[in-house]
């Protein structure tokens, strides 16, 4: 069953120039949809929707994290003090 997840991605300096989302699209059968982005020399921040099979989305997120991208659901800060 297809589902959609809304995520904030934060790219560290070493990944700012790498075409990470293109690579992700080639490796996993998920639909990437960028909704907002801010990229500087130092850091990249992207709001992204990922659509596909739940397991494929999970694998795509694990791949991003392995690469060094910080991945958070748009509902960040769910745990508070």
């Amino acid at each position: 069953m297809n589902e959609k997840q809304r995520l904030w991605l934060m790219f560290p300096t070493k990944l700012v120039t790498r075409p990470v989302l293109w690579e992700l699209g080639r490796q996993f059968p998920v639909i990437t949809n960028v909704r907002q982005a801010s990229v500087t020399e130092e850091i990249g921040i992207v709001s992204l929707s990922l659509e596909g099979e739940r397991e494929e989305i999970k694998k795509a997120i694990a791949w991003l994290e392995e690469l060094g991208v910080n991945v958070e659901p748009v509902e960040i800060n769910t745990i508070e003090g």
Binding site: V71, E72, P73, E75, I76, N77, T78, I79, E80
Partner: peptide, 23 residues
């Protein structure tokens, strides 16, 4: 880990229709 708990909470809020005060 912190981010895994975060993701679970947003999934619970969506799936069970609970009122999550900070989601």
């Amino acid at each position: 880990a912190y981010d895994q708990v975060n993701r679970l909470c947003s999934e619970i809020a969506g799936k069970y229709g609970w009122g999550f005060v900070n989601v």
